[in-house]
């Protein structure tokens, strides 16, 4: 009796592992395929039976990508954009979250509901008038329209996430500081921010991912190719080198791998952060 139950349990476990491993293979396969194709000749990529590992690693493909398109320039643009967006989003969303979580003031509820409401607002609806506004003041074809929103709150989701964290900190700490004569800005800098570093890292990572991955924004605002971000540069590459799959995969690696590296560095914080708030970016 207990024997059969044990074997049944064992069988169940093996099935679970088999399914999980199968799923993991499906998740990793496209990435592996991208990397292996990026290191092959344009003959080897098509070979049957399939070559999973390149016979000889062809790093020249990457060199060729860098010489056909100014990818270094795109990297510089993307890094500049990411730097300003991440700092802006972390600073202003944490300020706003502090204002909503730790200060008891008259406009708090209405500001909070406006922000929550704007989370549901489809970006597609606001993109045309926002573009026309920046066009009118002559700021298109620069990174500025992509940076300014980050310095004005950075996104409802970040504010919501940080507010949740700030609410979980006991009030008596800042009350003690308040009695000692500290003002809200000092409490924010010296007490709240140091205590919520993991949450700030999560916001920074989300801001990084969203900016690095953003396509529609740069596509609309940037029109000369010395201003392009890597995502946009890749699209240009795909458009012009459709048959050269190995080069296209090398270019794709250049866009994908930095995102994976950043994810690997911070994935612990990131997944914990999502788990904690139950929302995703």
């Amino acid at each position: 009796m207990s024997m059969t139950r044990k074997t049944k349990k064992r069988g169940m476990q093996i099935l679970v592992y088999a399914l999980l491993i199968f799923g993991s293979v499906l998740c990793l396969m496209p990435l592996f395929w991208m990397i292996r194709s990026s290191l092959m000749t344009n003959v080897e990529i098509f070979m049957v039976p399939i070559h999973w590992i390149p016979e000889k690693f062809r790093w020249e493909n990457y060199k060729e990508v860098f010489t056909t398109l100014p990818f270094l320039k795109y990297y510089a643009n993307s890094l500049k954009l990411v730097f300003f967006v991440v700092t802006g989003a972390v600073i202003t969303s944490s300020l706003c979250a502090y204002g909503l979580a730790r200060i008891d003031w008259g406009g708090r509820n209405i500001v909070f509901s406006c922000i929550m409401g704007s989370m549901m607002l489809p970006a597609a609806v606001t993109i045309i008038p926002t573009f026309l506004m920046f066009r009118k003041i002559g700021l298109t074809n620069s990174l500025i329209p992509l940076i300014i929103p980050a310095w004005l709150g950075g996104g409802a989701f970040y504010i919501f996430l940080l507010r949740q964290f700030f609410l979980s900190i006991p009030k008596d700490m800042d009350e003690a500081a308040y009695i000692d004569g500290a003002n809200h800005f000092q409490i924010y800098c010296r007490i709240i921010l140091p205590l919520t570093k993991p949450a700030l890292v999560v916001v920074g990572m989300f801001a990084f991912m969203n900016t690095w991955n953003d396509f529609l924004g740069p596509l609309i605002y940037l029109n000369s190719d010395d201003k392009y971000t890597v995502a946009l540069g890749l699209q240009l590459f795909i458009g012009s080198y459709r048959a050269e799959w190995q080069l296209m995969m090398a270019a794709a690696c250049l866009v994908v791998i930095p995102a994976i590296i950043v994810f690997m560095l911070g994935q612990r914080y990131l997944i914990e952060g999502i788990t904690m708030t139950g929302v995703k970016g």
């Binding site: 496209p30 395929w33 991208m34 991912m209 396509f215 795909i238 296209m248 995969m249």
Partner: peptide, 14 residues
């Protein structure tokens, strides 16, 4: 977390 543009290139190929 993989950029959609990068993945789109890969899907085109796969």
């Amino acid at each position: 977390i993989v950029p959609v543009v990068g993945m789109s290139a890969v899907w085109l190929w796969i």
